[in-house]
Amino acid sequence: MPSSTQVQLVRRPRGWPTEEDFRTVSVELGDLAPGQVRVRNEFLSVDPYMRGRMNDGPSYAPPYALGETMTGAAVGRVEESTSDELPVGALVLHGLGWRDVTQADASAFRRVEEIPGGPSSLHLGLFGMPGLTAYAGLTAVAGLREGERVFVSGAAGAVGTAAGQIARLLGARTVIGSAGSAEKVALLTSRYGYDVALNYKEAPIREQLRAAAPEGIDVFFDNVGGDHLEAALDVLNPNGRAAVCGSISAYNDSAPKPGPDNLSRIVTRTLTLRGFLVGQHPDLADEYREAVTRWFAAGELAYDETVVDGVENAVTAFLSMLRGGNTGKMVVRV
């Protein structure tokens, strides 16, 4: 009887999650029913949004159930099939992560192509949800125009590394990014197309951004919130736009923090702040796939991955990602 190693949530975190909030179990899998496939995952994704699903409260995605295996993006290969649609060996993308082997109806999986010159994990990063998030935020949400100045918070993460490069390819005049270490800051300018990179741990980001953007910024792509949002509000030019993608600085707070002290600038500078979810933009998926394939083949996009081995270490990878331990996409290699 085939089995699957799976990670379950057993306790709602209060503040920062700990290893004790999870358990790893072995689950026996039955025989395949007609039209089903069994997939051995190659890579699992751990993402910031998963922290919100560990809370029992209203959000855009339902909370994880206690005592049940969590879900998330994964890419793997079909190793057994009773479906004509997905033969053995097919590479598939799906939402049944946090486990090494999964099986379900073939409709739960989407066949994807091999990426020339790249690993299958790129379907979880640059070619997947983080890349599309960056593209949708810059184009559909912020309406980036050629010649504009852009600031990206959390610029060394999966979305941020994509956003900086895509902004450059779309014609941004200046791209500024923030990160939390000297090594990451160096990568932003040497590898990811950023003109200026700021280490928010060295000095208040509000002071650094004001000095780095004497002519202001037109677009803010926000992954962090908190002091980064406050800093951006200080320097957004009249009619500036903010695409608010995430607020990782607050995901593990046990109590609300005071908001920005300069919200009045939204009125006085006629700014637009718009939150968005990548799931609201399926219409851009084909457009982005064509663009990212072209850019990657031409050598115009770089990527980094932080890879943790073993599904039994998925929680460790997740916790590290929340604390900024990744450069580029954090993935678990199964």
Rank of each mutant, 00 (worst) to 15 (best):
R145F: 02
R145I: 06
R145S: 05
R145Q: 11
E146L: 05
E146N: 07
E146I: 10
E146W: 03
E146C: 10
E146K: 15
G147W: 05
G147N: 09
G147M: 03
E148D: 05
E148V: 05
R149L: 01
R149P: 01
R149F: 01
V150W: 02
V150T: 01
F151W: 08
F151G: 01
V152S: 11
V152Q: 07
V152P: 00
S153F: 00
G154I: 14
A155K: 14
A155G: 08
A155Q: 09
A156N: 12
A156Q: 14
G157F: 03
A158Q: 13
A158L: 03
A158Y: 06
V159H: 07
G160M: 13
T161G: 06
T161A: 11
A162N: 05
A162L: 06
A163D: 13
G164E: 07
I166Q: 14
I166K: 13
A167I: 02
A167F: 00
R168H: 01
R168G: 00
L169D: 08
L169K: 09
L170F: 11
L170Q: 06
G171H: 03
G171D: 03
A172I: 04
A172H: 00
R173K: 06
T174N: 01
V175A: 08
V175L: 10
V175C: 08
I176R: 12
I176T: 13
I176L: 10
I176N: 07
I176A: 02
G177A: 12
G177P: 06
S178F: 00
S178G: 04
A179L: 14
A179G: 15
A179F: 09
G180E: 07
G180K: 12
G180I: 08
S181Q: 12
S181W: 04
A182M: 06
E183P: 09
E183I: 09
E183H: 14
K184C: 11
V185Q: 08
V185S: 12
V185F: 02
A186Y: 02
A186R: 11
L187T: 13
L187H: 14
L188M: 14
L188V: 13
L188A: 13
T189H: 12
T189E: 13
S190I: 09
S190W: 12
S190P: 08
S190N: 15
R191Y: 02
R191S: 11
R191A: 07
R191H: 08
G193E: 01
G193K: 05
G193H: 05
Y194R: 00
Y194I: 06
Y194N: 00
D195T: 03
D195L: 09
D195P: 11
D195K: 08
V196A: 07
V196G: 04
V196K: 03
V196N: 01
V196C: 08
A197K: 11
A197N: 06
L198V: 04
L198G: 06
L198W: 01
L198F: 00
N199P: 10
N199D: 15
N199Q: 12
N199E: 04
